[in-house]
Amino acid sequence: MSTTTVRSGGDWLRQFLPRLVLAPSFAITLVFVYGFIIYTGYISVSKSKMLPNLDFVGLDNYRKLWKTLNWQVALDNLAIFGILYIVICGALGLFLAILLDQKIRGEGFLRPIYLYPMALSFVVTGTAWKWFLNPGLGLEKTMHDWGWASFKFDWLINPDMAIYTVVIAGVWQSSGFVMAMFLAGLRGVDEEQLKAAQLDGASTFQTYWRIIIPQLRAVFLSAFVVLAHMAIKAYDLVVALTGGGPGNATEVPATFMYSYTFTRNQMGVGAASAMIMLMTIAAIIVPYLYAETREARHE
């Protein structure tokens, strides 16, 4: 009875309040994320140099981009960094999670220690590792001061090795986070299965290899997606740690995009590189989201 009497005012509000509350953030996201993606997309096929120029030039910028040596270097570096970063983070994270899963004392104390690097921004991580790896300042100098005069660790200033220092810093920052994901996955495995495995005569290694790790497929996928997009977007870490150098030895797509768009007056080419990065990430994330939503509908 009462619903009919308040229908005019209360019902309208009840029905539209959620939309009303969500509208501002929806509008902002629509304009500043999707709107600017479209704008960037258009810039990438325009004649823009230092300033946006809306003259259409087709795929000229993309052709130019793929002929740029710097872009090739950036892609090579992304391949090295991306693969090593994902593989090492995954392996190390899983290994740490398995060690922490042994019902050891002090787990509550150890877990945050591994997780805290994730709380730092990549800029802080990059700066800290820049000092630590600086031959005249950090590890190498300390070893020399302690009397190990022949010790040499100059990857930071070695053009062939500098990209690996980015891997080291990235792994240091993210493996704890991956560990937390795996640990949650390990804790989700039914304890009775572990008892059953024990009765079946499986060793600890066999229990993990044959029973537990195969059940972590979803965690592997999530970890891969998270790490992959972080690798492709890697910008602040590289800027803080090596600044893209020595020379262009640690150029990655994100630093390439920034320098071409904002400092080298090649806004069109920069926008094209940004679009390539977007496509790459989309190629990873869209199938993942698709699979996730399909699974949800399945259940």
């Binding site: 495995a197 079946d200 029973i211």
Partner: peptide
């Protein structure tokens, strides 16, 4: 595993990643 006992659990504790056949044969394989 050396006591020569076998157990049926409340949650069944089947290994979800293995087929029924593998579940049954796992203990023998080990």
């Amino acid at each position: 595993s050396q006591r020569d006992i076998a157990m049926v659990f409340q949650s069944y504790a089947l290994y979800p990643n293995m087929s029924v056949e593998k579940n049954i044969s796992f203990g023998l394989e080990m």
